[in-house]
Design a protein around this nucleic acid. Structure first.
Lengths: 350, 350
DNA sequence: CTGAAAGCGCTTACAG
DNA sequence: CTGAAAGCGCTTACAG
């Protein structure tokens, strides 16, 4: 293995100083064209591979990359359609700024902390549900800008969230308008600890995930205005996988056949619910109305197609990346959702 | 802005040498516990943030990250279900090794070269269709291990591909067995230059993408064995998006109503084909048989569900990452596919 | 187990 | 526009 050719070798061969050679690569305008060419020729001849990335990073302090962390669901992030849309938006904005995207990968929370500490990035984007998390503390210790997505983190350089309360309120109102009167809520996990199935009032009150808290409040607000107490609503906590929510829904509808309105906190969950309800012969939307949350593509292909509260996850990711890259003071952006009407809540007019 | 606390400051405060302080963080076993604690205390007191990542990288030459490059479809990679599965496998293996995943992001090929040069990574994983590419040259100039996925790159440290020939041959054979006799092939792009619609014999012969070349050869081999010449098969080049392939299929079936077998090079393309065929009233599988390629989840929800050649893209990505991280000599892995039988090729027995 | 020293390869003030 | 020098912050032989 030959010794690596470095800038000084090139400079010597070209008969210039190291500084000038550096400029030829990094700031070509500062070097006279003929000298620049001489330097490039020397580089080619010696087999110089261009400035060493890590050395430049150390010197300039810039990593040229944004770190993306999914503390709640590390492996899972690459399966959730919504996370992928987020990543697409992040990737788009990073590409625009000529910055790479570093996905912090780990098998468990402890490893994630190491992974965060080993990542050469200029800022972190954190997608998580809960603000109380060792991984977040590890990031904050690094003292780099942190943009939080979908939850509030104290001291974040920026925050992008949804108006989850309004979205959930509108979702419940829509099912009320469609005539539903006996409700079940299929909730996302309320805390980091796995817990599936019926939610006790205790558990309902203990939701540490901002998204869950806000959406529950929104659903309840609309229902209570229609005279339906939260205690009369069946709450089921689901894993965010259609297979799992299908199982939960089968049990739900066996125990509570009177349910005629299902409020699902994600489309993935809603899709499982529709599958399960159809399998046991429930007619939708006549017999049972379902509304999801997110607006993923797969919702177009359920039977019936899924009515949902649509959010623009791509834009959410893009905005977060933009905040991270702009270096502006920390602000909070709250995005709106819109009702995406399909067949699972009312007969299509088509 | 206070000056950054560095290791030497901590060492002085703890009354040890810089080397010992370094060991306390990086190789704790080499430092006596009581000394170690003294160092950690000093670090805490001074607000030391832990060893500087970039400095360590420069010194050790290890980046602790794997670069992933999609030269053909930079933004598109986060939309294609198959690319996402690949990424999931890569992420899984990287997490296992405590290595982060760096996605090289760029808006155009030129930017991609810069992005490659700015990426602090230990090796590159390249997913591409064609081996002749400026981005690949840029990577090779960096002289780091390069694992190529889905195509052969000369000098790669490793290669992971599918047995595309056998897969396509089996796909065509299956439709023959189901009774199809008039075929159309919906092909992926054959070269990097956009070209959609009917393929001339010229274009067929010029396919620079390995995947397209192999699959065409496989389809043709099976069809020719059944007495069907390649020149009697309609070839259409599609963008890998269901909306686009749907349009192409509508035209195809208008021009060639006799077609009763569609061989699609991806499930995404096949899904569009099924949608289009159903929209104009073609009965599947009775009237028209369709087989896809990949085995993505969305294929379960078409009407009828999509028969396809299933590949394990997650494993493909995982294997590629494993090769990159093992540092073993370059070898080639060829993965098999399997027929995934659903309703688009024959009546289900259910 | 500990300390003193070298050096990873570059970029950037600074002086000309 | 060019050159000489400092230093980014660390880890790792090396000698004890």
């Amino acid at each position: 293995m030959a010794k690596r050719v470095k800038l000084l070798d090139v400079a010597k061969a070209a008969g210039v100083s190291q500084g000038t050679a550096s400029n030829a690569f990094g700031k070509p305008d500062l070097v006279r064209p003929e000298v620049r060419e001489r330097i490039f020729d020397a580089a080619r001849e010696l087999g110089y591979r261009g400035p060493h990335v890590m050395a430049r990073m150390l010197r300039t302090g810039k990593a040229g990359a944004l770190g993306v962390v999914f503390p709640d669901n590390l492996e899972y992030a690459f399966s959730d359609p919504v996370a992928i849309e987020l990543l697409r938006g992040i990737g788009r904005e990073c590409a625009h700024h000529g910055v790479n995207v570093m996905i912090i990968s780990a098998e468990n929370p402890e490893q994630a902390i190491t992974a965060v500490n080993n990542a050469a990035v200029d800022a972190f984007l954190v997608h998580c549900y809960s603000d109380n998390n060792d991984i977040i503390k590890a990031i904050q210790r690094r003292n780099q800008p942190l943009i939080s997505i979908d939850t509030d983190i104290a001291g974040a350089a920026g925050t992008v969230v949804l108006d989850d309360f309004a979205a959930a309120k509108n979702a419940a109102q829509h099912l009320l308008d469609c005539g539903a009167s006996k409700f079940a809520i299929l909730s996302l996990q309320a805390t980091e600890h796995d817990h599936f199935g019926p939610m006790s009032p205790n558990r309902l009150g203990a939701a540490s995930h901002r998204v869950v808290r806000e959406r529950l409040a929104g659903y309840h607000t609309a229902l209570e205005a229609a005279g339906i107490a939260a205690s009369d609503v069946v709450h089921i906590e689901c894993d965010n996988q259609s297979g799992h929510s299908a199982k939960m829904t089968t049990e739900l509808l066996a125990d509570h056949p009177e349910i005629d309105g299902i409020l699902a906190m994600s489309d993935v969950i809603a899709i499982g619910a529709i599958d399960a309800a159809r399998a046991i012969g429930r007619k939708m939307p006549g017999d049972l109305k379902v509304i999801g949350f997110d607006g993923i593509q797969a919702g177009e292909r359920t039977d019936p197609p899924l009515t949902t509260m649509h959010q623009d996850s791509v834009e959410k990711g893009r905005l977060a990346a933009e905040m991270a890259l702009s270096g502006e003071p920390g602000k909070t952006i709250m995005l709106e959702t819109s009702l995406l009407l399909r067949g699972s809540s009312q007969e299509s007019s088509a």
